[in-house]
C-alpha cells in the first residue's frame, strides 16, 4: 500500500509541488530553526573541542582518557540523552544543543590531536633549532599544518549535528524533524519525503561546503591534491 502511494506520489510530482507551495513559509522557518541549532552547537562545541585537543597533546595519559570519554559520549543514543536532559533543561533546543555539543567532541578533539601530533618530527626539530618557543611552534607550525585535518573533524561533527537535530524535534526543539515526525504520525508520504529531502540536502550542502574550505586550506599549505569543482571555481574567482 505504502509503496504504491510512494510511487504514485513520485509520478504525480504535482503533489510534492503543491505541498511545498502550501507549506513554503513553514518549511523555510523549520529550515532556519534547524540551521540555527546547528550553528549554535558548532559555536559552542568547536572551541571546547579544539582547546581540549590542544591541551591533550601535552599529556599522553590525558589524551587517552579524554578520547575514551568522548568515544563513550558517542555511544549514548541521542533520543535517550534528550530524554534524560529534559528534566534538567526543559523541553526545546537546550537539551538538544547540550547533547550535540557532546557528540561533536570526539571527531573534533580526535582530529585536532591527530593533526597536531602528526606533524613530522623533523619539522618540529627544525623549529626548535631555529629558536621557536613551544608556543611559536604550535602557532606557526602545528596549528596551520593541522588546520585542514581539524576542519575535516568539524565537518564530520556538523554532519552528525544536522542529522541528530532532526531527532531533536521529538522533544520540541523544532527544525525539519517536526515535518518528519508529523509525517510519520499522519502517514503523510509527501510530507516525509519533502522533509527528509530538505534535511538531507542541508547535510550534503554543509558537508560539501566545509570540504571545499578544507581543500582551500590544504592548497594554501602547498599540498598537491585532486581538486573538487567548487574548489577550482573559487580559486579561479579569487585569482
Amino acid at each position: 500500500m505504502g509503496l504504491i502511494h510512494f510511487v504514485l506520489g513520485l509520478t504525480v510530482g504535482s503533489a510534492y509541488v503543491e505541498f511545498i507551495r502550501e507549506n513554503f513559509t513553514q518549511l523555510i522557518a523549520r529550515l532556519a530553526e534547524h540551521i540555527l541549532i546547528t550553528a549554535q552547537t558548532v559555536l559552542i562545541a568547536v572551541p571546547i573541542a579544539v582547546s581540549l585537543g590542544i591541551l591533550i597533546t601535552y599529556n599522553d595519559q590525558a589524551a587517552t582518557a579524554v578520547l575514551w570519554l568522548a568515544g563513550i559520549a558517542m555511544t549514548i543514543p541521542s533520543l535517550a540523552a534528550f530524554g534524560l536532559l529534559v528534566p534538567f533543561l526543559g523541553i526545546g533546543s537546550a537539551p538538544v544543543i547540550f547533547t550535540l555539543v557532546l557528540y561533536s567532541q570526539l571527531p573534533v578533539i580526535r582530529n585536532t590531536y591527530v593533526g597536531l601530533t602528526g606533524v613530522e618530527e623533523a619539522t618540529k626539530n627544525a623549529g626548535r633549532g631555529l629558536g621557536m618557543t613551544r608556543r611559536q611552534r604550535l602557532q606557526r607550525l602545528q596549528i596551520p599544518m593541522a588546520l585542514p585535518i581539524i576542519l575535516a573533524g568539524v565537518r564530520n561533527a556538523v554532519v552528525i549535528v544536522v542529522g541528530v537535530t532532526a531527532v531533536g524535534a521529538y522533544i520540541g526543539a523544532g527544525g525539519l524533524g517536526e515535518f518528519i515526525f508529523e509525517g510519520i504520525r499522519q502517514g503523510d508520504t509527501v510530507m516525509i519525503v519533502v522533509a527528509t529531502v530538505v534535511v538531507s540536502v542541508l547535510a550534503l550542502v554543509v558537508d560539501y561546503g566545509i570540504a571545499t574550505v578544507e581543500q582551500l586550506l590544504r592548497l594554501r599549505n602547498g599540498e598537491q591534491i585532486e581538486q573538487r569543482v567548487s574548489t577550482q571555481v573559487i580559486r579561479r574567482a579569487v585569482q
Binding site: 626539530n125 627544525a126 626548535r128 633549532g129 629558536g131 607550525l141 599544518m145
Partner: peptide, 22 residues
C-alpha cells in the same frame, strides 16, 4: 635558550622545511 638558537644557524639531514610555507 631561545635567543641562543636564533643566533645560531641550524641545518639538519631531514631538511625539515615547513611544508605549509612558501
Amino acid at each position: 635558550r631561545i635567543d641562543l638558537r636564533r643566533n645560531i644557524g641550524y641545518v639538519i639531514q631531514e631538511i625539515g622545511l615547513f611544508d605549509h610555507m612558501t
